[in-house]
């Protein structure tokens, strides 16, 4: 393992459902050039929770299997997603199917009917979360950055809300920063930025705002060197979290000197 947990991590664990995590970086497993590269990146990231998707088995490619690489990720919990579902009914079925494939109670509810923008369907997402939370799933919804919906999802028993920073895979970072701050202000469950991040600095900024974690996939999977980028994101997430806990100084509207402005190497002015 290349991950060295910060000594502060254990005392600052993230609780989701009934499980605690010392890593606040959640990784997606899609878009990697190879399964081996995915495994290396997850290990380098220190992630303890990773997302996986459901799809039809491909009989033409029997070795295209995710179970073998996943078995190399000791101590990593799986969070299946419902990607591909176009409505609540399909997402609920996907969640129940995923439950047959792993012991994890986590489910990432993801319902985006339009492939052009992949924006989540708020109404279907709400309905799926309501049903799945009542069934005992630990539901983590991918959602639009909507503070009203975030509270409604909290009320039906989601263990976190995962608003998008910007469109999935777009790399537009925290375009929704102002709305994310409104969600953070009122949320009593962890707020996890899911989607849109491109640079580690954006992950740090999300953590500095008070997000509980970030979920990153494309930014690492399609980087020139995915394990190195995973390491970079891990450092950024830790730095951002430490900064949030340390408390950022207030913003001012004018300069505030950090050095004494007394006379130095010059004759004091007459009026001074």
């Amino acid at each position: 393992m290349t991950h060295h947990p910060d000594p502060t991590d254990a005392a600052d664990a993230l609780t989701l459902g009934e499980q605690t995590f010392t890593s606040r970086l959640i990784l997606g497993t899609g878009k990697f050039a190879s399964a081996a590269g995915m495994v290396q990146a997850v290990k380098a990231s220190g992630a303890q929770l990773v997302t996986v998707a459901l799809r039809r088995v491909n009989r033409e490619r029997p070795d295209d299997d995710l179970f073998t690489p996943l078995a190399q990720l000791d101590g990593v919990t799986l969070m299946p997603n419902t990607s591909g579902a176009r409505n609540a009914r399909e997402a609920i079925t996907a969640a129940r199917l995923a439950r047959q494939l792993c012991d994890s109670r986590f489910i990432k509810v993801e319902i985006h009917p339009n492939p052009h923008h992949l924006m989540p369907d708020a109404l279907e997402t709400y309905e799926a979360c309501r049903v799945l939370a009542a069934e005992g799933f630990w539901v983590m919804p991918y959602m639009p950055p909507d503070p009203v919906l975030a509270k409604r999802l909290e009320e039906v028993g989601c263990v976190s809300v995962m608003p998008l920073g910007s469109a999935i895979g777009s790399g537009h970072g925290l375009a929704a920063a102002d709305l994310l701050r409104l969600i953070l202000r009122d949320s009593r469950i962890p707020v996890i930025v899911d989607a849109g991040l491109r640079a580690p600095s954006e992950a740090a900024a999300a953590m500095e705002m008070g997000c509980g974690a970030v979920l990153v996939n494309s930014a690492i999977a399609v980087a020139g060197d995915p394990p190195a980028m995973a390491t970079a994101f891990a450092g950024a997430v830790r730095a951002g979290r430490l900064a949030y806990r340390a408390g950022l100084m207030p913003r001012g509207t004018a300069a505030v000197a950090s050095s004494p402005l007394t006379a130095f190497l010059s004759t004091p002015r007459a009026e001074a």
Binding site: G28, T29, G30, K31, F32, A35, M38, T51, V52, A53, L54, R55, R56, V57, D65, L66, F67, L70, L78, P80, N81, S83, L97, A98, L101, C102, I168, A195, L215, N217, S218
Partner: peptide, 10 residues
């Protein structure tokens, strides 16, 4: 019959 398995995904 739908036969499904895990695949990489975000």
């Amino acid at each position: 019959v739908e036969i499904l398995t895990f695949a990489g995904g975000g």
